[in-house]
Design a binder for these strands. Structure first.
Lengths: 191, 191
DNA sequence: TCGTGTGAAGTGATTCACAGCG
DNA sequence: CGCTGTGAATCACTTCACACGA
């Protein structure tokens, strides 16, 4: 909407676009504050700022990538991260033939330097893209080095201490969501 | 559990492992049928079979990849798909220098051959890994060619007709989930 | 005795509907 | 007059608690 120069929107328009009711949109937004203008709706620019504040993306975040395989490289090349304020500042891999190379503008470090580089770069978030067997170990190490948020791409459930935030992305599980819907022919549901 | 040779489990054990209550586990499983044995619990092998049936992964699915960029290549190399019965049988890209090459054992076809190859290979599911601008167009085309399920990696909301199942994976949104938790210091929630 | 499956109770989320502001 | 923000009503989900089978 901002790109299109749209000034304002409404809960009903947002709802239609997102697949919710207008009341749902208003309740959800009102939960975080008073962003709307009665009789007018929501100003697009104000709303964008407010949502960024809520999501914590009103600033830049310092990110590291652990595991520079196929998926890791894809993550390094993903432009969406930069657009949302996520800066990948360091990468790590066990493969010594990769160590020292730069992909995009990120240098691949040896795992032995992990603690040192994470501290030096003041890394806050880590993307775990290593094989399932190594995922918990890597997670423990980055958390010990001060990382507070984890996105885990390995198909295992990680254990993290209180205060550390964690999200798991299991690509096969996403496909299972589709096959579940097809196997049971659900006509509703969308994401 | 199967790998460890475990014979049976219980709703409370599953709940502890997954982060739910025992009652929740029982209700959810009972929703789909009677899989447990009173006094015993759930037999691991029986439960695995039952869950695969529910998820629709008790058979192989024929999958195509549209877009062989960094992310596409990562998806091609992801072993978890094969393990869950998802076979990527064809890939497509607009880049003519890629067309004709094989990555893993999948051939990259020209987009012009999309309809033909999808029909010939009887493709059921498609992974959309093209830039946001092209995502809806590619989706329309694969659906026209008979695809019934879509996993979309482009950061746009796709429109699909009734009967087609769709899941969206937005990598930046996963990170935002982490920053949201950190910005608001939620102590609960895990995925 | 252990542990499932399940009505009943309790809790939380969504929708309704309208007062009030621009 | 349009649209938000919000109590009240509705609806859905989770937890409780127990009958019953192994």
């Amino acid at each position: 909407m901002l790109r299109d120069g749209k000034e304002t929107t409404s809960s009903s328009e947002l709802g239609r676009l997102l697949g919710f009711t207008d009341a749902q949109v208003r309740k959800d937004l009102a939960h975080f504050g008073h962003f709307g203008h009665p009789g007018i709706g929501y100003r697009c620019d104000e709303l964008a700022v407010a949502i960024r504040k809520i999501l914590g993306t009103d600033r830049q975040w310092r990110v590291a990538l652990v595991g520079v395989g196929n998926l890791g490289r894809a993550l390094l090349g993903y432009r969406g991260f930069v657009q949302h304020g996520f800066r990948i500042l360091a990468a790590f891999d066990a493969d010594s033939t990769l160590v020292g190379s730069t992909i995009g503008d990120v240098t691949v470090h040896d795992l032995g330097q992990l603690d040192e580089v994470l501290a030096q770069q003041r890394i806050e978030l880590a993307l775990i893209a290593v094989p399932a067997e190594r995922a918990q170990e890597m997670t423990d190490r980055v958390i010990a080095a001060g990382v507070e948020g984890i996105v885990n791409f390995a198909p295992v459930t990680l254990t993290v201490p209180q205060g550390v935030s964690k999200v798991g992305v299991d690509l096969a599980r996403e496909l299972e969501q589709v096959t579940f819907a097809l196997a049971n022919r659900l006509s509703d549901e969308q994401a």
